[in-house]
Design a protein around this nucleic acid. Sequence first.
DNA 1: ACAGGTGTAATCACTGCGGTTACTTATTAA
DNA 2: TTAATAAGTAACCGCAGTGATTACACCTGT
Lengths: 138, 138
Amino acid sequence: MAVHVLAVLAYKEGDRVTSAFLAGSVNTNPVIIRRLLLTLQRAKLVDTCKGAGSGSRLNRSPGRINLAEIYRAVEEAEPFATPARKPNTACPVGHCIRKELDRIFESAQKAMERDLEKTSLADVINAVKASCAAKQAV
Amino acid sequence: MAVHVLAVLAYKEGDRVTSAFLAGSVNTNPVIIRRLLLTLQRAKLVDTCKGAGSGSRLNRSPGRINLAEIYRAVEEAEPFATPARKPNTACPVGHCIRKELDRIFESAQKAMERDLEKTSLADVINAVKASCAAKQAV
DNA sequence: ACAGGTGTAATCACTGCGGTTACTTATTAA
DNA sequence: TTAATAAGTAACCGCAGTGATTACACCTGT
C-alpha cells in the first residue's frame, strides 16, 4: 500500500494530492492513507500540508527513492517470527539457538533489502506506464 | 520454531524424540509441536512414528537440510502483504501496479531464500555447540 | 492388555491491521 | 472574518492468524 501511494504521488509529479484521492486509487479509507502518510513523513519521504487545496507530495524525486527505504519506513516487524515464550534454557539447544537464529535471519533480511534497493520508485512508475500503454495498444 | 525443533532433532542424531520433549525445549505445548511436525513431514524433512517409545527424527542428515527448505515448508504466506481489496482500476496506477509489485516482491523473496540456502542445519547446531562451549568456558 | 505415543478437532485468547465514524486543528480562499 | 477544505487523531469494530489448552480417538511395542 505504501508503494502504491508513493507511486501515485510520483505519477502526479509534485502536485499535492489529497488523502481522499489516494484512498480512491488504493480503494480504501482516507484515514488509513493519512495514518500511512504520517509514517512516510517521519521517514522524510513525503511532505504533507494541511488546509484547503493542499495534500501530500514526494519529498524527493522518484529516482532517488528505492523500495528498501519504503520497506524500512513502513515495516517495523521482523519478517521472521520468533516465539513469544523464551526457549527452555535447560536444553543445550534452547539455551543458545535464539541468538544464532537472530544472526541468520538478520542476514536474510539484509539480502532481501539489498534486492529491494535495486528498484527505485521511478522504475516502478515506468513499468506501470509501459504496462498500461501495452494494454491500451491491445 | 521449526528451525529450533529441527535443530534439536539434529542434536539428537537420529534418535527418535517425542513431541513432549521438543515442546519442553521450545517451551510450548506438545500439540503445537505435533502440528508443526505434520508440516515438516509433508516436506519430507522428518519421519514420525506413532506408538510407544517412538517419536520423530530427521529424514536426512543435517548437512543436507538448509534453512530455505525449512522456510518454504513452513511459511506459506508471502512476506509482503498486499491489501485485500483490489486497487481502483480506473486509476492508471492502480490498474497496473499490482502485477508489477508481485514481480518485485517475488524477486526480493527469492534473494532472501538464496541467503537462507547458504546455511544448513548442521551449520546451526555447530554454531550452537560452539556458543555453548564458549559460555561454559567462562 | 496397556502404557506411551501421535493425529486431530474444538475452543479460547491475544495480536495486528484494515475499516469506519467522529471530532479537532490548520490553512486557504472568498 | 467566515466558510470551506483537508490533515491529525482518538475510539471502536471486525476479521484473520497463531499459539495455547483440553479432550479424545487411534496406533504400536512390550
